[in-house]
């Protein structure tokens, strides 16, 4: 080969995605440092960790087999049914409320100030975890499923209005012009040109959100907002781990069925 190694530069360094190599190492050092600091900050002693792992074996053996007395079983069924009902009502309520918010937050339909209000509502409702909303709702309207329904509906607004407003922003405005051109009123424009374009998406998103709300409705009870969650929390507090494991398995089953049904329904619709 006609190569003379001495005459050509034998050094090469891989270009980096960072500003330069020093920056790269500084960034890596910072990340490593922060992770180590985090680790130090939560103060995990190896001893405690090992004891926990040992406890894991005990816990699993206490959990098996999953079991419940007839009374506990009835209570569980009640809780599950309540969770499912809560998710249905919350989804409906949330969608009804989020429809106007979605139109407000679509920058092709709403004037600027209204658009900003719509976006803020979405940002706030999306930012808080459903359990935080639930715990506040419990204090506002008392223990029970109503608090859960309100919390889930609140979360639904953020999710639904965001995705729906994006969908509205993508619509074909030519169709709106056409309806307006034949003399349609504002409402008629929405009914005849905007709605037909977004209906399939609305249905798909509703089914998807129902699935998500079903998941969440099984846990909001942990802060007192109705559903199976409170039963689960009580079983843990009474060290009745066989009952806990049964409830967890039932929740997993419900969630998996919900996910499969939702995926199937969305495929059918689209």
């Amino acid at each position: 080969m006609a190569t003379q190694p001495g005459s050509v530069d034998g050094n090469w360094e891989r270009p980096t995605a960072f500003y330069n190599r020093t920056t790269k190492y500084v960034v890596y050092a910072l990340i490593t440092g922060f992770v180590l600091y985090s680790f130090w900050n939560i103060r995990v002693s190896p001893d405690r960790f090992l004891r926990g792992l040992g406890g894991g074996v005990t816990l699993v053996s206490n959990m098996l087999p999953p079991a419940a007395t007839p009374m506990q079983f009835d209570l569980m069924v009640q809780g599950i049914v309540e969770s499912i009902l809560m998710s249905i009502i919350a989804t409906t309520l949330g969608i009804v409320v989020s429809a106007p918010v979605a139109f407000m937050a679509a920058n092709n339909l709403a004037p600027r100030p209204i658009y900003l209000v719509g976006r803020s509502i979405i940002a706030v409702t999306r930012s808080f975890h459903e359990l935080i909303v639930a715990i506040v709702m419990v204090k506002a309207v008392g223990f029970g499923p109503l608090a859960g329904v309100l919390a889930l509906a609140f979360k639904t607004v953020g999710f639904f209005a965001k995705l729906l407003s994006e969908e509205i922003e993508d619509i074909d405005t030519g169709q709106m012009d056409a309806i307006e051109a034949v003399g349609g009123s504002r409402m008629q424009v929405y009914l005849y040109s905007v709605l037909p374009q977004i209906i399939p998406r609305i249905i798909g998103l509703s089914i998807y959100r129902l699935d998500i709300n079903l998941r969440h409705s099984t846990v909001v009870g942990i802060v007192g907002a109705g559903g199976i969650g409170i039963t689960l929390l009580n079983s843990f507090q009474k060290y009745d781990y066989q009952y806990s494991s049964l409830i967890i398995l039932v929740i997993v089953g419900i969630v998996m069925i919900g996910e499969a049904a939702s995926a199937y329904a969305r495929r059918r619709v689209q």
């Binding site: 080969m1 190569t3 003379q4 190694p5 005459s7 050509v8 090469w12 891989r14």
Partner: peptide, 25 residues
Amino acid sequence: RNFDSEDIATAREVLRRVGLEGVEN
């Protein structure tokens, strides 16, 4: 990515032969 410096030199040479000098990065 600790390549032999002889290999790097050869790579530059080969890139020159195929007419791709200067695009190594």
